[in-house]
């Protein structure tokens, strides 16, 4: 890859952020992690990432945030030219049915993780979503076989005519 695929975590509680980041640290060598404590900060981080010609592969977003809430932030991202392709996961201890429906319909939410989470759960969701992202974006699956869902990636290679040369 000639550019980086970032994981963005939006969470206002610093201890919780710390825990998520640590749970995902094994992804960090392939997918650098960026963090933001508010939706506004997240917005500017997203812009910076794309400005540096990198991209955001996955956004893990809390719902209850000071200022703009997580679902609204995700909905806004849908109008972002590039970040609309990012996989979006809501990680929250509290979001009403309304909010969740909104997030699914308007922000094309890809997954919902209820707090408290387990590392296995978080790992598998992140793996799955990043795998989907890489396949959707038609990146060379081989670069991600060792860290993401290798069977799914191999399957995507099978379906796309691969050639010897």
């Amino acid at each position: 890859m000639d550019h980086e695929i970032y994981i963005l975590i939006v969470e206002d509680e610093l201890e919780v952020m710390d825990a998520i980041v640590n749970d995902l640290s094994e992804f960090e060598d392939h997918f650098p992690i960026e963090t933001a404590n508010t939706a506004e900060e997240a917005q500017s981080v997203v812009d910076q990432i794309y400005h540096a010609n990198n991209e955001v592969g996955l956004i893990l977003c809390d719902h209850v945030l000071p200022g703009k809430n997580g679902v609204d932030f995700l909905i806004e991202l849908q109008s972002h030219d590039l970040a609309r392709n990012s996989k979006k996961v809501l990680v929250t201890g509290q979001a009403g049915l309304e909010d969740t429906i909104q997030a699914i319909n308007k922000a094309r939410l890809d997954h919902y993780i209820a707090k408290p989470w387990t590392k296995e759960q978080l790992d598998s969701v992140v793996k799955e979503q990043l795998t989907n992202y890489v396949i959707d974006r038609k990146y060379n699956p081989m670069e991600f076989m060792a860290i993401l869902d290798s069977v799914k990636l191999a399957e995507s290679m099978r379906a796309n005519p691969l050639t010897d040369n």
């Binding site: 191999a154 399957e155 290679m157 099978r158 005519p161 691969l162 050639t163 010897d164």
Partner: peptide, 8 residues
């Protein structure tokens, strides 16, 4: 192709 076979 060898490659497609390997992927499968």
């Amino acid at each position: 192709s060898n490659t497609a076979t390997t992927a499968m």
